[in-house]
Simulated assay, not measured.
Amino acid sequence: MSKQPPERLLELQRRFAAHLRDPEHAPAPEGIEERRLAIYRRLFFNNLSNLFARNFPVIRRLHEDADWQALIREFLAEHRSHTPMFTEIGREFVDFLERRGESDPEQAPWLAELAHWEFLETCVRLDEAEVAPDGWLESLEADDRVQVNPTLCLAEYRWPVHRIGPEFRPEQGEATLLAVYRQGNDRVAFMQVNPITARLLQLLRGDEQATAARALERLAEELERPVDELLEASRDLLATLARRGLLRRA
């Protein structure tokens, strides 16, 4: 039974896409002028390379040009994305590096986590939640009912990803908790936090009617510590979180 035109078209599209992803190993479909193919190949590769360079600027600076191009080509040839969403392509790059790290001993052990950190910054930047341009206070009392910045994301890493760059490539792991969020001026900010602060933010975010005192009482129960002690110790912390734009009066 001969193939119907839609089937032939689908096969042509698959061969064309395979060639664009991996021109060295996937032959181009017959009947397409090489000059045009070269333009498609160049545009396809450069667009993705430039997109990843903007969304993963630290990783880009860590690679020489040739190494960066080889990494992007490997992504195109080896990885199959699970979403057509353009804004989600960064997540696919994170997944690629995670799987690559499991089989490639030469990949830096912190590279996938660094990619996740950089992608998280992009997610916060694109978060549609509205952040009040003002009202993030210089101080906050325990009895105040509070609101957590709606763009807040907490992430735990085995490496100090926020410090990695051309001048610092860690050789030993360091447990790191980071809070990343968008400020009222639309700038992305981050703060390194300890597990107690992270848990406090989680408790406050999970209860819209919570006061700082109520969340601290729950935290004291979890930690099996005196409530008064935790309330007193938290005064400077609450002020810092409010000043940094993580908490505000509801």
Rank of each mutant, 00 (worst) to 15 (best):
P57I: 12
F168L: 07
W117F: 12
R187L: 15
H63R: 09
I164S: 00
P133K: 05
E221H: 10
R199C: 04
W159M: 06
E121S: 14
P226S: 03
A66E: 14
R158V: 07
P195S: 14
R73M: 15
D65E: 15
T176N: 02
F44L: 08
F86P: 06
G184A: 00
E102F: 03
Q147L: 10
G101W: 03
R214H: 03
V193Q: 11
P170D: 01
L137P: 06
A242V: 04
L48S: 04
Y157H: 07
R225L: 12
M85S: 13
E118K: 13
P170K: 02
L37N: 01
V227P: 02
E138L: 13
V131Y: 01
H25D: 12
R243P: 08
L137E: 06
L62P: 06
G245C: 05
L241D: 00
A77R: 06
R187A: 15
N194W: 10
E33P: 02
I164E: 00
G31A: 02
R125F: 12
P166K: 09
R235S: 11
P105W: 08
Q147T: 09
W117E: 05
M1A: 14
F16V: 03
G206F: 01
R244E: 14
I89N: 08
W159T: 04
A175K: 15
Q147R: 06
L76E: 09
N50F: 10
W68R: 07
P105T: 06
G135K: 07
M85D: 12
I32L: 07
A26L: 04
P150F: 10
R199Q: 02
E102Y: 04
Q172W: 10
L241Q: 00
I32C: 01
D236M: 13
M85K: 15
P84W: 03
I32F: 02
F52K: 03
R244G: 09
I196L: 15
Q69I: 13
P23H: 00
L230N: 01
W136K: 08
M1Y: 09
Q192P: 14
A155G: 08
E138K: 11
L97Q: 02
G135A: 05
S139W: 04
F45D: 02
Q107D: 03
R199A: 01
A220M: 01
E113A: 04
R21K: 10
L178I: 06
V188G: 01
D228F: 03
R80F: 11
A115W: 05
P166H: 04
L178T: 00
E232W: 10
F45Q: 03
R249G: 10
H116Y: 14
G90L: 05
L247A: 03
F168W: 04
L154Y: 01
R249L: 13
D65M: 15
T197P: 05
V131G: 00
Q172L: 13
L137G: 09
Y40M: 10
E106T: 12
V58S: 00
L241K: 02
R61H: 07
E130A: 10
W117V: 07
I72A: 07
A26R: 06
E130R: 11
E224P: 07
T87M: 15
P160E: 04
A233Q: 11
P6I: 09
A66S: 11
M1L: 13
L223Y: 08
L204M: 10
L216R: 00
P195C: 12
V58I: 11
L111M: 13
E128N: 12
